[in-house]
């Protein structure tokens, strides 16, 4: 009888202990996860006047929270792609010598359509639409 009561009390004590531990750890772990910050929904961003963009040049700007690289190639055509490498999130750059997008971190290479052509990137870069309105360059989401 005494033994059973002791076992039962030990069981109760363990449950309380686990519960107390949970009550301490749950708020701690929840605290560690940063709260989500509401993002403004951006649909398009003005890049600037076309004349400020010579052929064979590039610029990185923010589209909401995402860095986007805008490239004007040798033929004068514009391309806008996510500037975040799909491998490990480094910011890519336009290589004039290769006419392609290059990531310095792990030597990943993309063409100007954003397709991953060599190195470790597993996916292509997201493409953005480029429009010219009144000589002003505007980029917006595809589709």
């Amino acid at each position: 009888m005494g033994q059973t009561r002791r076992k039962f009390l030990n069981f109760l004590l363990s449950i309380t202990g686990i519960g107390a531990l949970g009550a301490i750890l749950y708020p701690v772990f929840s605290y560690l996860v940063p709260p989500k910050i509401a993002e403004a929904n951006v649909n398009s961003v003005k890049v600037g006047k076309v004349m400020h963009f010579p052929p064979d040049s590039s610029k990185i700007l923010k589209f909401g929270r995402e860095p986007v690289i805008v490239v004007r190639d040798k033929q004068g055509e514009f391309h806008a792609l996510s500037a975040v490498c799909t491998h490990l999130q480094c910011i890519v750059q336009f290589r004039t010598d290769k006419e392609s997008i290059w990531c310095a971190c792990h030597n990943g290479l993309y063409d100007l359509k954003g397709r991953n052509i060599s190195g470790p990137p597993p996916k292509p870069l997201k493409e953005f639409k480029v429009n010219i309105v009144n000589d002003e360059l505007i980029i917006s989401k595809m589709g």
């Binding site: 990185i60 923010k62 860095p67 480094c90 910011i91 750059q93 990531c103 310095a104 971190c105």
Partner: peptide
Amino acid sequence: DPLSSAPAGI
């Protein structure tokens, strides 16, 4: 600078 490209030779 979060908007600059990763430097070459990193």
